[in-house]
Write a protein that binds this DNA or RNA. Structure first.
Lengths: 204, 204
DNA sequence: TAGATTGTTAATCGATTAACAATC
DNA sequence: TAGATTGTTAATCGATTAACAATC
């Protein structure tokens, strides 16, 4: 099991989308087709695919269905990953409604909030639970992943609770930098940065 | 004006968040403090800062306020960027409500949808307009940026309209790969990929 | 002064691209 | 057969890290 870089993960996920929608029904696809659609070098695409252990066919390319399944395997889409969403605002709501999560093994168990009007209700079919119960439930169900969609002012405090209870991964949608021990990973979903990178592409 | 890589943009945006929230009130910050909080090498932080044209002070570090302003300048936060959101579902709603966009010059003018129950209403203070009027308005207001939050099946069709009317940047939140001419930039906001990258960090 | 911190160069590391033999 | 496409190696490019003189 070779380590695989974040850039490769990102590209493989895009190949997967492409195979799922754009290439639906086609039996074969060539590395050059994928490369053209995503504006990449075709040898890079072949290298990525080689990492998944898929062999192509000269003159024909790769079997779409086989490639798709191998990417799913390589990235672990079928392994179930349990997640709590903390913050049942509009972003938390959008994420719980994100239909595709299921297909990737991302299983949202509940949302947490401290708004009495939301607690006890359901959003996207999931229960909204009081923030007071967070620590308890993280420990009890042994949750390792949380999605953070609280207001920035609350981000560090919630993080501290979650870390104490054993959370390992924090997917941070708030525009804040979090202090955590080295054993905990924060992934910064830096929404504004994405926009700036997009605009940068005009020059680059 | 040297070109600046996406990785640098991403880090500068994180430094900015850090200065805005975590370091509020502190007059100075050292490169090593930023590096520790974000788990980076301190010389990398100094290089990034040098790109913004900010000079530090030996033994003290950088002036927080000056650094913050220089990052804003460098990344163009104060330049106004007009945007249409296409798709007024829960993700479109979350984005129009994203309070911080204003601070970064991202100005959402309207949402577009084809649901008669939504058209004419307001979401997050912005009008929801019929998709039929999209082409017309893009051309007339000369919109260059769109945010795509429609169902995946509709993504390519909407893209084709938008491109015809002169859109230059498409921030694609749908899990699809889009065919566009070379002059148009698609930025793939690959939400599932982010999660997989986060989990990958446990090994890497 | 001694210690801390910058600014910058050189060394290293990793990722992408070019090239091409193999072969269907 | 000729052309297309893979699989892979070598070359290039770019980004990060190490190191250290300068200096407050």
């Amino acid at each position: 099991m070779t380590a695989i870089s974040n850039k490769v993960i990102n590209r493989l996920t895009l190949y997967h989308c492409l195979l799922k929608y754009t290439c639906k029904g086609k039996p074969f696809i060539a590395s050059s087709e994928i490369a053209d659609l995503l504006d990449l070098d075709d040898s890079l695409v072949r290298k990525d695919i080689a990492l998944c252990g898929v062999l192509g066919h000269k003159k024909q390319g790769y079997v779409v269905d086989e490639l798709k399944k191998s990417i799913e395997q390589k990235l672990g889409f079928s392994e179930r990953k349990e997640v709590f969403i903390i913050g049942a605002g509009s972003l938390g709501t959008a994420l719980v409604n994100y239909a595709d999560f299921k297909d990737y093994g991302i299983d949202i168990l509940a949302l947490f909030d401290n708004d009495p009007n939301k607690i006890g209700k359901e959003i996207g079919g999931k229960r909204v639970v009081s923030l007071e119960k967070l620590s308890n439930l993280i420990s009890r169900i042994n949750i390792k992943n949380i999605i953070l969609t609280v207001p920035p002012q609350a981000a560090q405090e919630v993080t501290d609770y979650a870390v104490q209870c054993g959370v390992r991964f924090i997917w941070n949608f708030t525009p804040t930098v979090l202090r955590v021990p080295k054993t905990v990973t924060v992934y910064y979903e830096n929404i504004v940065s994405s926009f700036m990178q997009m605009q940068n592409a005009s020059i680059a």
